[in-house]
Design a protein around this nucleic acid. Structure first.
Length: 501
RNA sequence: GCUCGUAUAGUGUAGUGGCCCAUCAUGAAGGACUCUCAUUCCUUCGACCCGGGUUCAAAUCCCGGUACGAGCACCA
């Protein structure tokens, strides 16, 4: 009896173990999973985009599948694409996921595919050209009534379609709709628009070979649905704001006789310290000079985070930990910083940096000529740095100079009097505070950049000499992690905790 | 208004009827280690939205309420 139950209990016990990482995908076969992430290249990637990249690319790895990066650049007016973003997004994707996407698709290169499907839709009578003004159709949608255009003949639909392509209409005059059902419970799904006109003469597409070539453009729901089918996408994981997109697209798939991919959604994420940022708004603020550029450290772009020393590993850990719940959440940056500390501490060389340094003359007997310090306290293999004491003068941070007795870290006890630092022996003799310091001549002027509450602060100071290459993330002792931007500038990785937040 | 979705510690997250007086992380507080206010380690704090129902048994299923979010664009 007990033996009978034992295996059962054991099995159950295992399922209760805390799940590590992402959950399983429904209907997924190893080697046959195709995922995609489809940003609009109207600017470089931001923090939020990282979620789509991390989640989708991690599933790709889990199932040994394929990952597609797709540029949904089908709006030239409301969210005009930015030419430089195409290359930048690809580069950032590779940085973040550690791998090139298996395929890169640009929607504006695929217009013939969308046109072909639109034509099929019209000739197979599950789409129609609608000439109702937006306001009028809205009325139909609300009252669940069909608009007169809905019963147009196939012949007439095709003719109007040709006229659209031919430029015989103005944007706003005409649109191609998917025939669903005007009595559908969900108003969002009622005869939704699939393609519309754009004035690409006054708003040309920034890609040279596209420019003003097309006036008829697919809308997201149509373009995305058709492209997912064309690429054989098996699983779509995206924000839950696109849940109705799934429903719209499923209706389209039914018309075409296709099977819609498996879908999963994540909720909205807000970061306490950032509020709402939109790519369009950032673009404006950069143009007006509010921000210095896309990698301005105050901005939540991937470029900015990377620039100030947030590693791709930390970003991955952060998003994987949030997973794919549909809950709307608000997270503090401290969570991201905790991941970053983990990813960075083990390899960050230690350096001394003095903000507002004061000079003291070091006096006393038996003072050694130089000093050897570990580059990293836990890793002797990272080598040592040597400080020469022969100038006889040392520097301390101003804020550490108000005490009479301090211990110079890794060196000696001293007593401070006026401009004199009296050497009191190498041994630590009491519990006096330990401060970081530098011998004069062992460093040079440098600036530390830090952002706090949306303001950039620059602190001039005295930085220990080093030979770490630009881009190295170091730890400034007693200050925090910082990234080397050039030979005289560093930027703080994790902004200080803001009080009262 | 209509439609859809979500509700577990301060913040995130695990948990799909008994292993749960609930997991892990982060945070806060305390401590150990350390010649950094770093790292590492230990301890403590702290939660199943509310009300009904089903059941021997509910965080887990059902109904209602409440709260929050999203969609209803010729944006993505």
């Amino acid at each position: 009896m007990l033996e009978k139950e034992a295996p059962h209990l054991l099995e159950k016990r295992e399922t209760k173990e805390r799940r590590e990482g992402l959950p399983e995908l429904n209907n997924a076969t190893k080697g046959k999973v195709v995922l995609r992430f489809a940003p609009n290249p109207n600017g470089p990637l931001s923090f939020g985009h990282a979620r789509g990249l991390v989640i989708n690319s991690t599933f790709r790895a889990m199932y040994d599948g394929e990952f597609i990066l797709r540029f949904d650049d089908t709006d030239t007016k409301v969210k005009p694409p930015m030419l430089e973003a195409y290359a930048q997004i690809q580069e950032e994707t590779e940085w973040l996921t550690g791998r090139k996407p298996d395929r890169v698709i640009i929607a504006s290169d695929r217009m013939d595919v969308y046109y072909q499907r639109a034509r099929e839709m019209l000739s197979q009578e599950f789409g129609y050209v609608c000439q109702c003004p937006a306001e009028v159709f809205k009325e139909h949608r609300v009252t669940k009534t069909e608009c007169p255009c809905r019963n147009r003949s196939t012949q007439s639909n095709i003719e109007l379609w040709e006229a659209m392509l031919d430029g015989q209409f103005q944007p706003g005059d005409v649109v191609v709709r998917v025939k669903t059902d005007m009595t559908l419970k969900n108003p969002a799904l009622r005869d939704w628009p699939a393609l519309r006109l754009q004035d690409t003469t006054s708003h040309p597409h920034p890609r040279q070979n596209i420019g003003s070539k097309y006036v008829v453009w697919p809308l997201l729901d149509f373009q995305s649905a058709v492209e997912d089918q064309a690429q054989g996408v098996t699983h779509i994981i995206r924000g839950k704001d696109l849940m109705d997109s799934t429903r719209k697209q499923t209706l389209l798939y039914q018309h075409f006789g296709w099977t819609y991919p498996e879908t999963m959604y994540w909720g909205r994420v807000k970061v306490h310290e950032w509020g709402g940022f939109s790519t369009s708004q950032m673009r404006k603020d950069i143009e007006t000079g509010t921000y210095g550029g896309w990698d301005d450290p105050r901005l939540p772009t991937l470029g900015a985070l990377r620039e100030r020393g947030i590693t791709s590993e930390a970003l991955r850990g952060f998003w994987l930990e949030l997973g794919i719940t549909q809950k709307d959440i608000s997270v503090p940056l401290a969570t991201l910083y905790a991941h970053n500390t983990k990813s960075v501490d083990d390899t960050a060389p230690r350096l001394s940096f003095l903000r507002n340094s004061n000079v003291f003359e070091l006096q006393g007997e038996d003072i050694p000529g130089n000093l050897e310090l570990a580059t990293h306290p836990n890793h002797p293999s990272m080598g040592t740095r040597t400080w020469n004491l022969e100038t006889g003068t040392i520097l301390l941070e101003e804020s550490d100079c108000h005490q009479n007795k301090v211990r110079l870290k890794e060196f000696a006890d001293i007593a401070l009097h006026g401009g004199i630092a009296r050497f009191q022996g190498l041994q630590r003799s009491d519990k006096r505070p330990i401060v970081h310091w530098l011998p004069d001549g062992c460093g040079g002027p440098a600036t530390l950049i830090e952002t706090a509450n949306g303001v950039i602060h620059r602190t001039d100071g005295y930085l220990e000499h080093h030979e770490h290459p630009i881009g190295t993330i170091v730890q400034l002792e007693r200050i925090g992690y910082a990234k080397i931007l050039d030979d005289k500038t560093l930027i703080v990785c994790h902004e200080a905790k803001s009080e009262g937040a």
